[in-house]
């Protein structure tokens, strides 16, 4: 009997709402992999890997060990605007960060369990540019810890801050994480991508639609 290799590389169906996230078969790890860019969220109940590269961005990895459903977000708070709400994190940024966290938590909880069941791990928020007058990474770190404290959700593990970008591999089925701190040669690409994303959300702020019935 011949081995049908292409069949073994079929990616599992993405959950509704996550079909637009880029996925591929990672040959080295032999696993279906979702690659997150800034502003994206991915949740799965399959045996998959979620990978991303973080500069000053932060990723929260959230899973329910009982249902083995888990996911990751990748966010970068927009720059200062009006409507100061949370101390040190102004309104537009807080609304955006809240959305990134709430979408992830809600999608994981749709498959059962409550907030007390969640296993949360945090990564990123590096000060990747020496010349930055403002520590964008620190702002993202402060936001996410503040959010989880206010929601009464415990952080099980974290690797945040420092000066390096991180490559993050997350396995929502088991909760395992691999973090690789990247050296200088990779910093320029990460910084450029994050700067472009910040410009995007400045030009076109993320806001949901309003429908009156």
């Amino acid at each position: 009997m011949s081995l049908d290799i292409s069949r073994s590389h079929t990616l599992p169906a993405a959950l509704p709402g996550f079909q637009s996230i880029k996925r591929y078969w990672d040959n080295a790890m032999a696993i279906s992999t979702a690659k997150l860019m800034p502003g994206e969220v991915y949740v799965t109940k399959q045996d998959e890997m979620i990978m991303t590269v973080l500069g000053s961005c932060v990723s929260a990895c959230v899973r329910n060990p009982r249902t083995q459903v888990g996911g990751m977000n990748h966010f970068l708070l927009p720059q200062k605007g009006a409507h100061a709400v949370v101390p040190s994190i102004e309104g537009a940024a807080a609304r955006y960060g809240n959305w990134a966290m709430e979408v992830l938590i809600n999608e994981v909880l749709k498959f059962g369990g409550c907030k007390d069941d969640l296993e949360v791990k945090l990564f990123g928020g590096g000060k990747v540019l020496d010349s930055m007058t403002m520590d964008i990474g620190l702002r993202n770190i402060e936001f996410v810890f503040g959010f989880l404290e206010m929601e009464g959700i415990r952080v099980q593990a974290h690797d945040v801050g420092d000066r390096y970008p991180r490559k993050l591999l997350y396995f929502p089925n088991t909760g395992k994480v691999r973090v690789c701190k990247l050296q200088n040669t990779n910093q320029a690409t990460v910084v450029r991508r994050e700067a472009a994303y910040l410009q995007d959300i400045k030009n076109k702020p993320l806001e949901g639609e309003i429908d009156l019935f």
Binding site: G91, G208, E209, I210
Partner: peptide, 14 residues
């Protein structure tokens, strides 16, 4: 329901 507002919300539009 009267309407459906998707987060993140724009305060002025809300």
């Amino acid at each position: 329901a009267t309407g459906w507002v998707v987060k993140p919300f724009n305060p002025d539009k809300l």
